[in-house]
Design a protein around this nucleic acid. Structure first.
Length: 426
DNA sequence: TCTGGGGTCCTAGGACCC
DNA sequence: TCTGGGGTCCTAGGACCC
């Protein structure tokens, strides 16, 4: 059996952890640039604040009901996520734990006898909540897709289910799938959901009973076949090896205010390149390709209209590298190619792809000694930046003023990762 | 030269996830 | 409806090989 453990309203729960005054109050957390709402507590959901709803459209509602709103504080969420995941690894075994996202993990529970599953899940839930202060919900079923179904249902009725649902019989699976609309299934997005509804398929049980070949034809080939088998309880989406590394790494951001100068654009792109390079080094990889993209938003009829135009530029690197200086050089070059004088840019990004293990980088006799020492320079910079704070050491190309930086006006303190922002008790 | 029947590798684009 | 910043997997089509 597989379990999915999911933190309830994760970003909001992190914010509330250090704010007892908000424990029963509505809270929302905003995306970067304070653009839209990406996490809501139950109290906020009850007020009718939608998921991914634009912040400015809900501002009135938020202020009227004294909803606490926060900018995203990734230092805090990242650290608390690590605590939750470490706890789960301790309880289920690291090799049985697949961290699926910042607030979710799949657990392989095959070693636990069927009649002990509920007690085991309950114990995991209690210990995780006690050790981390973050509430979780658990769904258990024969396959990943079904465990997600169970998890979703357990969240809908936290009191009735105790935040745990186990689907361990055909009858339970049937009941669960009948009350799950197709668009709530993991792997069915809005496109497929609409398609299914046009065929008169509304819930998970109806989909489960469709022929495999029909799914192959209509739901993206083998993806559709896997989906239907998973619904039938045949595991097709396997647990991932915890040691797997990423194949591409990106850093992209909206700008706080639109950028129209090439110098600003290059600064931003250099900053994203160095951030991406850092992430690449952290997983001991090197990139063999680099992409830069920009999104321009023009004035139309003297009116500011949302009309994003994106262009991108790609380069295959002569040699795999994770060196910030080198990557900034290429990124700046591509940014220059993309730049047009009369455009305003609202967003840009850098993607590092074709990642290979960094120990496979060929060093050669003809490389200068200086170049051979660059990895040491990089790790020295990484160590300083990690132990002190972000960007103590940075490339000048990334800018000093950074007037394109995103807005984050409502960010809470980084309680758990910065000495000078510790939680204070008087 | 494009006639047959394979095969591989790469990229772009679509669909999905949180 | 497209608001945010990440990612993954799959397929189709082109280039190239024998």
């Amino acid at each position: 059996m597989k379990a999915i453990v999911d933190c309830n309203s994760f970003y909001c729960s992190c914010e509330r952890l250090f704010r007892p005054d908000l424990w029963n109050k509505p809270v929302v957390v905003l995306s970067n640039n304070d653009g839209c709402i990406v996490s809501r507590t139950d109290e906020a959901k009850k007020l009718g604040i939608g998921m991914a709803a634009p912040y400015y459209q809900n501002k009135e509602l938020i202020e009227k009901n004294e909803v606490a709103a926060f900018s995203s504080n990734y230092h805090l969420y990242g650290d608390l996520s690590m605590r939750v995941m470490d706890t789960l690894r301790a309880l289920a075994g690291a090799h049985n734990t697949e961290v699926y996202s910042v607030d979710e993990a799949f657990l392989d529970l095959d070693m636990i006898p069927g009649n002990e599953l509920y007690d085991a899940a309950k114990r995991m839930k209690e210990i995780t909540e006690q050790w981390t202060g973050i509430k979780v919900s658990i769904g258990v079923a024969p396959t990943k897709v079904l465990s997600k179904v169970a998890n979703k249902l357990s969240k809908k009725d936290k009191k009735g289910t105790g935040g745990i649902i186990i689907l361990d019989s055909v009858e339970k699976i049937k009941d669960a799938l009948e009350s799950t609309p197709v668009d709530d299934l993991w792997g069915i997005g809005h496109r497929y959901a609409n398609k299914l509804k046009n065929f008169g398929i509304e819930n998970g049980w109806q989909l489960r009973n469709m022929p495999e070949e029909w799914c192959r034809k209509n739901l993206g080939g083998v993806v559709g076949v896997r989906m239907i088998r998973e619904l039938k309880g045949i595991p097709c989406i396997l647990m991932k090896d915890p040691l797997e590394v990423k194949k591409m790494i990106a850093t992209t951001r909206m700008f706080g205010t639109p950028v129209h100068k090439l110098s600003d654009l290059k600064e931003a792109v250099a900053t994203y390149a160095s951030r991406a390079a850092e992430k690449v080094r952290r997983q001991r990889s090197a990139a063999t390709s680099l992409d830069v993209f920009v999104v321009a938003n023009g004035f139309i009829d003297r009116k500011y209209e949302y009309n994003p135009q994106s262009r991108h530029s790609h380069i295959t690197l002569p040699q795999a590298t994770s060196n910030t200086g080198e990557l900034i050089g290429y990124a700046a070059l591509l940014a220059e190619n993309l730049f047009r004088p009369n455009e305003k840019y609202i967003k840009a990004g850098v993607l590092l792809g074709g990642l290979v293990p960094d120990n496979s980088i060929q060093s050669n006799l003809f490389m200068t000694q200086e170049k051979n020492r660059l990895p040491q320079l990089m790790s020295a910079i990484d160590n300083i930046n990690f132990s002190m704070r972000d960007d103590v050491v940075k490339y000048v190309a990334t800018g000093l003023k950074r007037n394109w930086k995103m807005r984050q006006q409502l960010r809470s303190k980084r309680y758990t990762t910065r000495w000078d922002e510790l939680f204070e008790i008087r």
